[in-house]
Write a protein that binds this DNA or RNA. Structure first.
Lengths: 152, 152
DNA sequence: ATCCAAATTTAGCCTTTGCTAAACTTTAAC
DNA sequence: GTTAAAGTTTAGCAAAGGCTAAATTTGGAT
């Protein structure tokens, strides 16, 4: 406890508070964007894998209801990431493809990194999905560098 | 594309879909619980640091409005993690302390791991906050093991 | 050409987690 | 003791992301 003029006060820590809130703010911001990335990443995967991406399959793979996907696709369309005619397959815009590719790149690096670290395939798959969106470029580079090493 | 009885069908991939949705479901579940952990972790930190945790300081450090903290504290109280008399400092229950300690342990391991990997202090601080909640026990153990190594 | 099942969309609801503004308490200063 | 500032709570609103049930469209089978 700190005293000032004989009065008990809380130690003011503006700098610490600012630094700390910065991390929490970024994590919250990450959460808003990660859903969009998950969607376009999955849509890209489906197009590559099956020739087209249908809403039902997206819902199935994300583990959400059909209606949820429809609603989200409207938002992704507003953000310029996907296009879709009613009752037709989902298309990615150029921007959508770019985001998807970037997401896949990040995802692969993280998953590969975990595997290199000796994590089981099952856990690496599960953890990388959660971690993927919270890793800065600096950390991502370090992970890639680490995987490139011959041994450690 | 796959054909069956001369009819074009989407290749059914129930196993793949199930596996994939599992990861997304877990990530969504993690998101619900991580806020609670952030709160108790921060409250524990404030108690250790200043002798008590006040709502205003929690709001400042998390970067949210005061009212948001009040609302969340009600939920944490319902979950048996904190107790609080109106207009008084926030207390942690036994369960709250346990969750906080566990969170701090995880946080420290992740941050330390990033530092060991050669990440800058600034980035390690920011990234570890986001990553912390998405790391399984298996991965956490591997990270701790990695830090314990003398060299790599 | 018609019909039916599957896919898709719409409508309406819920919970979570934010916010601001206004009201109420506490507490230090006088 | 009063008072005013700081801290806390209440009230009411918004956006995001879920859900179910009902309506609509599509397209292969007949």
């Amino acid at each position: 406890m700190v005293y000032c003029n004989n009065r008990k006060i809380m130690a003011t820590t503006p700098r610490k508070a600012k630094l700390q809130s910065q991390a929490f703010r970024r994590t919250r911001a990450d959460h808003s964007s990660e859903l969009a990335e998950d969607y376009v990443e999955l849509i890209a995967e489906l197009i590559d894998e099956k020739g087209e991406a249908r809403g039902t399959e997206v819902a199935l793979r994300l583990g959400v209801a059909n209606a949820t996907v429809v609603k989200m696709l409207k938002k992704l369309n507003d953000r310029g990431l996907v296009t879709q005619e009613p009752y037709r397959a989902i298309m990615l815009t150029g921007e959508g493809w770019a985001l998807a590719e970037n997401g896949r790149r990040r995802h692969d690096i993280v998953e590969n990194f975990l595997l290199t670290l000796g994590i089981s395939a099952e856990t690496a798959r599960l953890d990388s999905e959660g971690i993927e969106h919270h890793v800065s470029d600096e950390t991502l580079k370090a992970m890639a560098r680490f995987c490139a090493r011959k041994s450690w």
